[in-house]
Simulated assay, not measured.
Amino acid sequence: MARVKAADGGIRALALDPLRNFKHETVAVAEWGGALVTVRALSAGDWVEYRRRAAELVSAARVEAGLSAHALELAEGEETPSEPQVEVNANVLYAFVLVRTLFDENQQRVFCDGDVDEVAEAFSPVHDRLSAKVFELSGVGLNEDPPDPVDAAGNA
């Protein structure tokens, strides 16, 4: 078995590298003067925080709409909830995704966690495209149904 030579910082640096251990891709952003940025897949901790923030947004939207904070369970035989669904501005969630996963040419995060509201305020089709790439790298298709695991495994 061949040995992998550790980079300048040794194994510790390799193990802690924010990009090396995740799927990532460098993207040229024409709208930003051709700037090269790197986006990476979400970490397990990012996913946990994303889900927490999503649940918080939905609860707040439900309360604002005059509904209970938590969705009702479906009654037996029902296919749709008995309460209306609420609209949530997902830009703040997608801004969170970019804040956690957007890196500059020096492999440093562009934003800190406190920048989520500012990024959400500036959210544009460019930001949307970059966050879609993050989800793609994370194995999530935003506009497609997930494949049937039986079909994907070839066990049909």
Rank of each mutant, 00 (worst) to 15 (best):
M1F: 15
R3D: 11
G9F: 14
G10P: 02
R12A: 14
R12Q: 15
R12H: 13
A13W: 01
P18D: 03
P18A: 01
R20N: 09
F22C: 05
K23A: 00
H24S: 08
V27I: 15
A30Q: 13
E31I: 03
W32C: 01
L36W: 05
V37T: 05
V37N: 03
A41K: 01
G45F: 00
W47H: 04
V48F: 05
R51V: 06
A54T: 06
A54S: 12
A55Q: 11
S59H: 08
V63C: 09
E64C: 06
A65P: 08
L67T: 07
H70Q: 13
A71S: 15
E73V: 12
A75T: 09
E76W: 14
G77K: 07
G77Q: 05
E78P: 08
E78A: 14
E83I: 04
Q85P: 03
V86I: 09
V88I: 04
A90V: 10
A90S: 14
N91T: 14
N91Y: 12
N91H: 15
Y94Q: 08
A95G: 09
F96M: 06
F96R: 02
V97Q: 00
V99G: 00
V99I: 03
V99A: 00
D104H: 07
E105K: 09
Q107N: 13
V110C: 07
F111C: 00
G114E: 01
D117P: 01
E118T: 03
V119L: 04
S124D: 13
P125I: 02
P125N: 12
V126P: 02
D128H: 07
R129V: 01
L130K: 01
L130S: 05
S131F: 01
S131L: 00
K133H: 03
V134Q: 00
V134M: 00
F135T: 03
E144W: 07
P146H: 08
P146C: 05
P147K: 10
D148C: 14
A153P: 04
G154L: 08
N155E: 10
N155W: 10
A156C: 11
A156Y: 13
